[in-house]
């Protein structure tokens, strides 16, 4: 076989390229092997409410424990007092990839700290 005409720089670039390509393939293979088929399973976590100039905010964190991405995740947060709904807020998260978390805020006019219960849930999402 003809001798390869490569200098040091070219061997370095080749080495780096090889490492990158092989490690990406290895990672994807590992990921494909360990990945199930479960639909998005979304955990909703609420943080401490805070007061801002024009109302109140409740921070909400969404975590997708499923094996698929959820698109257009609609979140609803409800303030309840005496068993009755006092105020409701909604927002949408464009994409929630598997294993990822996204943060948002629900905005209210009533102080969430004065109501009996704050309930948050995911109303629905699309398959991308």
């Amino acid at each position: 076989m003809k001798k390869l005409q490569k200098n040091r720089v070219e061997w370095i670039v080749f080495g780096v390229g090889l490492v990158l390509v092989v490690s990406i393939l290895a990672f994807l293979t590992y990921d494909a092997a360990s990945l199930g088929d479960a639909p998005p399973s979304i955990e909703v976590r609420m943080g401490a409410p805070s007061q801002v100039a024009h109302g109140f905010l409740v921070p909400v964190t969404l975590i997708n424990h499923g094996d698929q991405t959820a698109e257009g995740v609609a979140v609803e947060v409800v303030l309840e007092s005496g068993g009755a709904e006092k105020e409701r807020a909604e927002f949408t998260v464009a994409f929630l990839p598997r294993g990822s978390s996204r943060e948002g805020w629900a905005a209210f006019q009533n102080d969430p700290r004065t109501v009996e219960r704050v309930k948050a849930r995911v109303m629905g999402f699309e398959k991308p």
Binding site: M1, K2, L4, K6, E10, V13, F14, V16, G17, L18, V19, L20, V21, I24
Partner: peptide, 17 residues
């Protein structure tokens, strides 16, 4: 030769990434 073509392709893919 083919070996060099393969090496070049790996380099290009690495640069792309």
């Amino acid at each position: 030769n083919w070996l060099e073509v393969v090496i070049d392709s790996v380099e290009e893919m690495g640069l792309g990434v």
